[in-house]
């Protein structure tokens, strides 16, 4: 981000920015930056907090009133809802996927298990979309979720299985399928009561669901595929850094 500030400002246009990683900003030394102690992905602090977002934006813009630079200033407030982990421990998906109620397991029928799980989340997903006046982040692949589910599960046994889109590289198809499925689950889970954070949803998604198990299996298929691009992607793009412990311990 700071490098872009250099490139644009040297063309004669003033820049200011939010910084989420102070160490990087100190190295790059852009003209103006407001360091904010927010989560990655949330440069304006928190969703649906217009007053707070406006304060952050104003503070970043006010750096433009300085006569000389570079300027690196700290934003003094934590984001609303940036609760400590104790405050978010209470979140749990209210659709129960425990073995006791799960009729289909990933081990016996991965596609069946996935479809069953997605069906159970459907009402929450629909409710979330309704609350946001029809907005959803699902659909980036432009492929129907049922087709994506079948494709994703097929990758467990065969990374060469026919992709639903042939106009994009295979690694991108795999990644888009993973992203769309995750978006569906996260939107459904975030629509439920409670203060769900990205970490609490990720702990549930990667650690407690059928899709989490399938993802670990697909990750492993990609890692062992012999295809350099898929192997690299399996290391970096399918599991977040804080969920690497869900990688399968298979050689």
């Amino acid at each position: 981000m700071g490098a872009l500030a250099h490139y644009i400002e040297r063309e004669g246009i003033s820049t200011t920015q939010v910084s989420l990683v102070k160490e990087h900003t100190l190295k790059i030394n852009p003209p103006r930056a407001l360091w904010a102690p927010f989560e990655l992905g949330r440069p304006f602090g928190a969703p649906d907090e217009p007053d707070f977002q406006r304060r952050v934006l104003k503070a970043a813009l006010k750096l433009l009133e300085r006569d000389s630079g570079p300027v690196l200033e700290d934003f003094p407030e934590e984001a609303p809802g940036s609760a400590s982990e104790e405050d978010t421990e209470g979140w749990a998906c209210v659709v129960n996927f425990s073995e006791a109620v799960k009729e289909i397991t990933v081990e016996e029928d991965p596609l069946g298990a996935l479809k069953q799980e997605m069906d159970r989340l459907r009402s929450w997903y629909d409710l979330g979309v309704e609350k946001r006046n029809g907005r959803t982040t699902v659909g980036i692949s432009e492929v129907d979720l049922d087709i994506l589910s079948e494709y994703f599960v097929s990758l467990i046994d065969d990374v060469d299985s026919a992709p639903p889109r042939t106009d994009i590289p295979r690694f991108q198809m795999v990644k888009l399928a993973a992203d769309d499925l995750k978006a569906y689950y996260f939107e459904a889970a975030a629509a439920q009561p409670g203060n769900a954070t990205d970490k609490s949803l990720a702990d549930w998604y990667y650690g407690e669901t059928a899709i989490g198990k399938i993802l670990a299996l697909v990750n492993e298929s990609c890692r062992l595929s012999g295809d350099e691009v898929l192997m690299k992607m399996s290391d970096r793009r399918l599991l977040p850094i804080h969920q690497k412990h869900h990688k399968l311990a298979v050689n």
Partner: peptide, 11 residues
């Protein structure tokens, strides 16, 4: 995959 997307999903 290493940043929060829930915030953007919501707003």
């Amino acid at each position: 995959t290493n940043f929060d997307r829930i915030g953007f999903m919501q707003d």
